[in-house]
Simulated assay, not measured.
Amino acid sequence: MKKEEKVIVGISIGDLNGIGPEIIIKSYEDPRSLELNTPVIFASGKTMQFFKNHYKSRINLYNIDSAQKVVHGKINVVNVWNEPVKIEFGKEDKKIGEFAIKSLEAATSALKEGTIDVLVTAPINKHNIQSDNFNFPGHTNYLAEALGGNSLMFMVSDGLRVGLLTDHVPLKDAANHITEELITEKINTVITSLQQDFAIRKPKVAVLAINPHAGDNGVIGKEDDDILRPTLEKIKSEGNLVYGPYSADSFFGSNNYQKFDAVIASYHDQGLIPFKTITFGQGVNYTAGLDKVRTSPDHGTAYEIAGKGQADESSFKQAIFAAIQIFRNRVVYNQYSKNPLKKATK
Rank of each mutant, 00 (worst) to 15 (best):
residue 246 Y to D: 12
residue 233 E to V: 04
residue 246 Y to A: 05
residue 210 I to S: 01
residue 234 K to W: 08
residue 208 L to M: 01
residue 194 L to K: 03
residue 235 I to Y: 05
residue 197 D to M: 04
residue 238 E to V: 06
residue 192 T to F: 07
residue 243 Y to P: 05
residue 200 I to E: 11
residue 209 A to K: 00
residue 226 D to A: 12
residue 205 V to P: 03
residue 248 A to W: 00
residue 200 I to H: 10
residue 195 Q to S: 11
residue 195 Q to M: 13
residue 207 V to L: 07
residue 212 P to V: 07
residue 247 S to P: 06
residue 224 D to T: 03
residue 200 I to T: 10
residue 198 F to E: 12
residue 230 P to V: 04
residue 202 K to L: 13
residue 218 G to M: 10
residue 221 G to W: 03
residue 247 S to N: 11
residue 214 A to W: 01
residue 219 V to P: 02
residue 205 V to F: 09
residue 213 H to C: 02
residue 211 N to A: 06
residue 207 V to G: 04
residue 216 D to C: 10
residue 247 S to A: 13
residue 202 K to C: 12
residue 240 N to E: 12
residue 239 G to H: 08
residue 239 G to E: 12
residue 232 L to V: 05
residue 212 P to H: 11
residue 197 D to F: 08
residue 243 Y to V: 06
residue 216 D to R: 10
residue 248 A to V: 02
residue 225 D to Q: 14
residue 196 Q to A: 11
residue 214 A to S: 11
residue 227 I to M: 02
residue 244 G to C: 04
residue 217 N to V: 05
residue 223 E to W: 00
residue 221 G to S: 09
residue 216 D to A: 09
residue 239 G to Y: 12
residue 241 L to P: 04
residue 220 I to F: 14
residue 241 L to Q: 15
residue 229 R to G: 06
residue 202 K to A: 14
residue 233 E to H: 11
residue 243 Y to Q: 12
residue 232 L to D: 09
residue 247 S to T: 09
residue 240 N to T: 07
residue 209 A to V: 03
residue 228 L to P: 01
residue 223 E to G: 00
residue 244 G to Q: 06
residue 197 D to I: 02
residue 221 G to R: 05
residue 223 E to N: 01
residue 225 D to M: 10
residue 195 Q to V: 08
residue 230 P to S: 06
residue 233 E to Y: 08
residue 227 I to F: 00
residue 224 D to M: 00
residue 244 G to M: 03
residue 227 I to K: 01
residue 224 D to G: 04
residue 192 T to V: 08
residue 220 I to N: 09
residue 222 K to A: 14
residue 241 L to G: 07
residue 212 P to F: 04
residue 206 A to L: 04
residue 196 Q to F: 14
residue 239 G to I: 06
residue 210 I to A: 01
residue 209 A to R: 00
residue 205 V to T: 06
residue 237 S to D: 14
residue 214 A to P: 01
residue 199 A to N: 15
residue 239 G to S: 07
residue 241 L to H: 15
residue 234 K to Y: 12
residue 200 I to R: 10
residue 239 G to Q: 12
residue 218 G to N: 13
residue 239 G to V: 03
residue 216 D to L: 11
residue 211 N to K: 04
residue 213 H to F: 05
residue 215 G to W: 02
residue 197 D to T: 07
residue 203 P to K: 07
residue 226 D to S: 14
residue 247 S to E: 11
residue 243 Y to E: 15
residue 235 I to Q: 03
residue 200 I to A: 09
residue 237 S to K: 05
residue 203 P to D: 13
residue 223 E to V: 00
residue 210 I to E: 04
residue 245 P to L: 02
residue 228 L to A: 03
residue 205 V to N: 05
residue 201 R to Y: 14
residue 214 A to D: 10
residue 208 L to A: 02
residue 213 H to G: 03
residue 240 N to V: 06
residue 194 L to E: 09
residue 239 G to D: 11
